[in-house]
Simulated scan of single mutants.
Amino acid sequence: MNADARTRAARIKLVAFDIDGVMTDGGLHYTNDGGELKTFNVQDGLGLKLMQRAGFALAIVTGRNSGVVSARAADLGIEHVFQGVGDKEATVAALLDRRGLAWEECAFMGDDLIDLAVMGRCGLAIAPANARLIVKECAHLLTEAGGGHGAVREAIEFILAAQDKLAAAFAPYLKP
């Protein structure tokens, strides 16, 4: 991890996430009738809500198409959801342009080759512990947790702390 990860995190306004291997453990489970199942971490979900309440924009950018992802995004109120994306860099660039943001104000969390181009441009590249080695080497921040096991929450708390917003995010849940 680069020593300047905290400085980079202090500039972030939008955080985009891959799904498989980041918000999930990367496993794909199919039912007998061909339906798809994914397991998401509830603590990651609360972290995403904390980020939204702190004023961050969130996005999902994934190479696969899944109704399960649509349902999870709707459950969390994530507005920017891009599925079936072959060029994540172009997708994030267009989102940044629409929102009037620069690359240094964007964080992206990914775990595999398809994520490298966007991670190479964003202000804060984040990889979960289970990411491919080449992705870890590109990351400014490497989480101790793996995808689907709290990595998203860990990254979120890092960004909130870097912007001195962590205590305020936790405050509603702490007893006086």
Score class of each variant (00 low, 15 high):
residue 67 G to H: 02
residue 26 G to H: 10
residue 37 L to I: 15
residue 154 E to Y: 10
residue 87 D to S: 04
residue 37 L to R: 08
residue 105 E to R: 01
residue 27 G to I: 00
residue 94 A to N: 12
residue 81 V to H: 01
residue 176 P to D: 14
residue 61 V to I: 15
residue 34 G to W: 07
residue 24 T to N: 06
residue 104 E to K: 05
residue 81 V to E: 03
residue 75 D to N: 04
residue 111 D to M: 09
residue 149 H to D: 08
residue 140 H to F: 00
residue 54 A to Y: 13
residue 141 L to F: 15
residue 31 T to Y: 06
residue 105 E to T: 10
residue 67 G to M: 04
residue 2 N to G: 10
residue 85 V to D: 09
residue 107 A to L: 06
residue 51 M to A: 12
residue 134 I to G: 00
residue 87 D to C: 11
residue 161 A to L: 05
residue 176 P to G: 08
residue 60 I to R: 03
residue 83 Q to C: 00
residue 53 R to D: 14
residue 76 L to F: 02
residue 90 A to S: 14
residue 63 G to P: 11
residue 91 T to N: 03
residue 106 C to K: 04
residue 140 H to V: 06
residue 91 T to W: 01
residue 65 N to K: 15
residue 19 I to K: 02
residue 169 A to E: 08
residue 114 I to R: 05
residue 125 A to T: 04
residue 61 V to Q: 09
residue 159 I to R: 12
residue 74 A to E: 13
residue 20 D to C: 02
residue 33 D to I: 02
residue 167 A to P: 00
residue 128 P to V: 04
residue 51 M to V: 10
residue 79 E to N: 07
residue 62 T to C: 04
residue 64 R to Y: 06
residue 62 T to I: 03
residue 141 L to H: 10
residue 170 F to S: 00
residue 81 V to Q: 09
residue 40 F to R: 00
residue 103 W to R: 04
residue 120 G to F: 03
residue 127 A to D: 01
residue 113 L to Q: 12
residue 17 F to E: 06
residue 134 I to Q: 14
residue 39 T to W: 01
residue 102 A to H: 13
residue 92 V to F: 01
residue 68 V to T: 11
residue 35 G to E: 10
residue 29 H to A: 13
residue 96 L to N: 14
residue 62 T to Q: 09
residue 123 G to S: 10
residue 19 I to R: 01
residue 136 K to P: 02
residue 156 I to C: 06
residue 128 P to Q: 07
residue 7 T to L: 15
residue 100 G to F: 10
residue 41 N to V: 00
residue 88 K to S: 12
residue 93 A to W: 09
residue 53 R to Q: 15
residue 46 L to C: 03
residue 170 F to M: 15
residue 3 A to R: 14
residue 92 V to M: 04
residue 131 A to H: 05
residue 23 M to D: 05
residue 140 H to M: 09
residue 133 L to I: 11
residue 1 M to L: 06
residue 176 P to L: 09
residue 109 M to W: 08
residue 145 A to P: 00
residue 74 A to F: 06
residue 90 A to C: 06
residue 117 A to C: 01
residue 74 A to V: 01
residue 124 L to N: 12
residue 45 G to V: 08
residue 40 F to I: 06
residue 167 A to H: 13
residue 89 E to G: 00
residue 24 T to K: 07
residue 152 V to S: 04
residue 171 A to E: 15
residue 26 G to T: 05
residue 138 C to H: 09
residue 57 A to I: 08
residue 85 V to R: 01
residue 100 G to V: 13
residue 89 E to W: 12
residue 29 H to M: 14
residue 59 A to D: 08
residue 115 D to V: 02
residue 50 L to V: 05
residue 55 G to S: 10
residue 136 K to S: 02
residue 131 A to W: 02
residue 84 G to I: 11
residue 122 C to M: 08
residue 77 G to K: 03
residue 36 E to I: 11
residue 156 I to R: 00
residue 130 N to A: 08
residue 160 L to P: 07
residue 67 G to Y: 03
residue 105 E to S: 07
residue 80 H to D: 11
residue 136 K to D: 01
residue 55 G to E: 11
residue 103 W to N: 02
residue 69 V to C: 06
residue 151 A to R: 02
residue 78 I to M: 10
residue 159 I to T: 07
residue 24 T to Q: 03
residue 14 L to K: 07
residue 92 V to A: 06
residue 160 L to A: 12
residue 83 Q to E: 14
